[in-house]
């Protein structure tokens, strides 16, 4: 199993997709840093001109800015997780690379688990680094828009953020074990899109007190709970900042109603169940 984990890990590192992602991520962090710097500078000037300027506006901008940064970071991580994983079994079956590996004394479930560990380990590290990079940009270049979050909240937020690729990888492995790379990729991207749109609709519904929109958001979270994990990350970061204004200030990228612990448990179970499904499906199928 560990050999497979190592192989999957190396494969992602050796392939150009990872190198390109790293370079584009650096470009993104740089761009985000520049944007944060100039936004903070302008707000800082305004604040010094307007004595007693609205603290609420400042807070809203700060959390919106970090919300945008983290949301796009979550999107990149999700995309990389999908691209790296959805062909990891299907592609090897299609090319027959898996044949010689499975002719070894190895359980098929160990192959799936090995891939989960290899890819998951890599993407968790990537997600955690990206999360830290966005927060560091805010802390160093945020100026007046700098948010103060306790270290414990930051750590919990990071763990929740880094959990996202694991859930995606579990679902991607299940799809990869049962269908072609392209079909699996399309399904997963659409599922991710449903969660993405559902999350926004839920926030709008909360703001407008529209139950229909809230319910759509809840259903989409049950179908694909990745967005709720992101919302939980945001509320973890800002709800614990001891500032009641933050709750209202997070807007579309935050969470007007924090996903419950039950939802968090559901999300974890969702990932575990899909990983078990992936192992079962791969063990039963013909190659």
């Amino acid at each position: 199993m560990l050999t497979i984990a190592k192989l999957s890990y190396k494969e992602t590192l050796y392939k150009r997709i990872f190198l390109i992602t790293i370079l584009m991520t650096l470009a993104y962090v740089l761009f985000y840093g520049i944007a944060t710097h100039y936004a903070a500078k302008q707000i800082g000037d305004q604040l010094s001109n307007e004595i007693g300027a609205a603290q609420m506006e400042q807070q809203m901008l700060a959390t919106q800015l970090i919300g945008v940064g983290l949301y796009f970071a979550s999107f990149i991580t999700a995309l990389l997780s999908i691209l790296a994983t959805v062909g990891s079994i299907a592609g090897e079956i299609e090319s027959h690379q898996i044949d010689t590996i499975l002719s070894r004394p190895l359980h098929r479930r160990d192959v799936v688990l090995g891939k989960f560990i290899g890819l998951g380990g890599l993407l968790v590290i990537y997600a955690a680094c990206l999360f830290i990079a966005i927060l560091l940009v805010n802390l160093n270049f945020g100026g007046a828009l700098h948010v103060s979050v306790p270290a414990s909240s930051m750590l919990t937020g990071m763990l929740l953020f880094a959990l996202q690729p694991l859930i995606l990888i579990a679902v991607a492995l299940w799809l990869s074990a049962r269908m072609s790379t392209i079909n699996g990729g399309i399904i997963l991207i659409i599922l991710y899109g449903i969660g993405f749109v559902g999350g926004f609709l839920e926030q709008i519904g909360q703001a407008l007190n529209n139950h229909a929109l809230v319910n759509i958001g809840i259903v989409s979270s049950l179908v694909f709970p990745l967005d709720s994990l992101f919302r939980r990350t945001m509320s973890q970061l800002f709800n614990s900042a001891n500032d009641p204004l933050n709750i209202a200030a997070q807007g579309l990228f935050g969470s007007l109603a924090e996903p419950t612990t039950s939802m968090l448990i559901y999300t974890l179970l969702y990932g575990v169940v899909f990983l078990l499904f992936a192992m079962r499906k791969f063990s039963k199928r013909d190659l």
């Binding site: 044949d99 499975l102 002719s103 039963k284 013909d286 190659l287």
Partner: peptide
């Protein structure tokens, strides 16, 4: 392939 467990 059946002998090697690749096919059931």
């Amino acid at each position: 392939r059946t002998m090697l467990g690749l096919l059931h």
